[in-house]
């Protein structure tokens, strides 16, 4: 169900912990599975659990507890806009409004072309550069409507430098 590369990455994670503590690699294994397949289907969660010799329910508990796991399909680019207090004080609501209008989707929704998902998240630890959002591996900070427009244009242009 997972590629050789992902399996290797999981094996590497496992090697960080004492041999009897394979469960410690669970969070990482779920992340790696999600990175490869986009989101965590039930079967994928079960598969990961079996890989680590864990009862599937344990993996399901973890997958539903942490916010970085997607249990449903999401767009290719997921805007995670921080809405916690420092960003809020610096206009995060406006950022969300702007994105929502530009993309034509509400919070938690994905554009029809499957390109974009918009989410509001809690504090991402970049409060001094508010307002900000996370997109893939990166933080985009001190956002303005203009910088957002530029970002969207770049992504719609098919830039792959963002994931």
């Amino acid at each position: 169900m997972l590629s050789e590369k992902s399996l290797e990455a999981i094996a590497f994670e496992r090697s960080k912990y004492p041999p009897e503590e394979s469960r410690s690699a669970l969070l990482a294994a779920l992340r790696i599975a999600q990175e490869e397949q986009g989101y965590l289907r039930d079967e994928l969660i079960t598969y990961v659990a079996n890989l680590l010799d864990l009862p599937p329910i344990q993996a399901f508990e973890v997958a539903t507890f942490y916010t970085m796991y997607d249990l449903k399909p999401v767009g290719r680019h997921k805007f995670c806009v921080c809405g916690s207090v420092s960003c809020f004080l610096n206009g995060s609501d406006r950022i969300i409004r702007h994105l929502s209008e530009r993309l034509g989707i509400g919070l938690g929704e994905t554009t029809e072309d499957g390109l974009f998902t918009l989410q509001e998240v809690e504090c991402l630890g970049a409060c001094k550069d508010a307002p900000m959002l996370q997109l893939g591996d990166r933080y985009y900070e001190n956002l303005t409507p203009e910088s957002l427009d530029a970002l969207i244009a770049e992504l719609q242009g098919g830039s792959t430098d963002v994931r």
């Binding site: 009862p55 329910i57 344990q58 399901f60 508990e61 539903t64 507890f65």
Partner: peptide, 10 residues
């Protein structure tokens, strides 16, 4: 001895 029940979500 079998973990079938769990508490999901937070």
């Amino acid at each position: 001895g079998i973990k079938e029940l769990g508490a999901t979500g937070r």
